[in-house]
Simulated assay, not measured.
Amino acid sequence: MAFCNKFGGLMKLSQTGNVPVTSMIGSLRYMSTKLFVGGLSWGTDDQSLREAFAHFGEVVDAKVIIDRESGRSRGFGFVNFSDETAANAAISEMDGKDLNGRNIRVNVANERPKELIVKKMS
């Protein structure tokens, strides 16, 4: 369902000329390759997260989410792979495994509902 929503939104924007085709294709390409990684230790940073997942395939981006007020990790992050095969292998191998002293959860990232984004921006 998230794929259909994203694709429909991108198609509407592309018809208005606001989104280049390469951007649209890039957005679709990364949809099934973005992973949510939960249960991270406070000491895990972007680089160590990238290194933990790099042997499954090309990591396009690895980001630990940081609390704005404290500057400390919120305990979760996201890893983007260049292909779906690598992402699936990472899920299979890393879900429930130990990373920096914590058992992590790894699954396909869900797209954030638009209502939450609008409320946060208000």
Rank of each mutant, 00 (worst) to 15 (best):
R102L: 11
R74L: 05
M11S: 15
Q15H: 10
A62V: 05
T85F: 09
T16H: 13
L40G: 08
V108Y: 03
M1Q: 13
V118Q: 15
S82D: 14
M31I: 01
G71M: 07
T85C: 05
G77A: 04
S14A: 10
P20D: 11
S82W: 04
I66K: 06
A86Y: 03
R72D: 02
M94V: 09
G77R: 00
G39I: 08
K119I: 12
L99Y: 10
L49D: 02
F7H: 03
R68G: 14
S48F: 04
L49E: 00
W42P: 01
N100Q: 15
K120W: 11
M121I: 14
D98T: 15
F56W: 10
M31G: 00
V60I: 12
N5G: 14
F81C: 01
A109M: 03
G75C: 10
M24Y: 03
F76V: 11
S48W: 08
E111V: 11
W42V: 12
Y30G: 08
A86V: 11
A62M: 02
N110F: 06
Y30C: 01
N80H: 09
A2M: 06
A52L: 07
G96L: 10
S32M: 05
D67K: 02
G17L: 08
D98N: 15
E115A: 14
M24L: 11
S32N: 08
V64D: 00
L116C: 09
V19W: 01
K119S: 12
S48A: 10
F53V: 07
F78K: 01
S92K: 14
G9L: 09
N18M: 14
R74D: 04
S122Q: 13
R74I: 02
P20E: 12
S14V: 04
S82H: 10
D95A: 02
E115D: 12
M11I: 13
G57S: 15
I65P: 01
L10Q: 06
G57C: 13
V79P: 00
G57E: 07
N80G: 01
E93I: 12
P113K: 10
S73V: 05
L28A: 12
D46C: 00
V118K: 13
A52C: 13
F3S: 13
R72Y: 09
A54R: 08
H55N: 11
V37R: 02
S14D: 13
M11A: 07
G38R: 03
T44H: 01
F81M: 05
V64Y: 00
G17K: 08
N110V: 00
M24V: 14
F3I: 12
R50A: 07
A90D: 07
I66E: 08
I66C: 04
G17Q: 10
T22S: 14
S70Q: 04
F53M: 06
V21L: 12
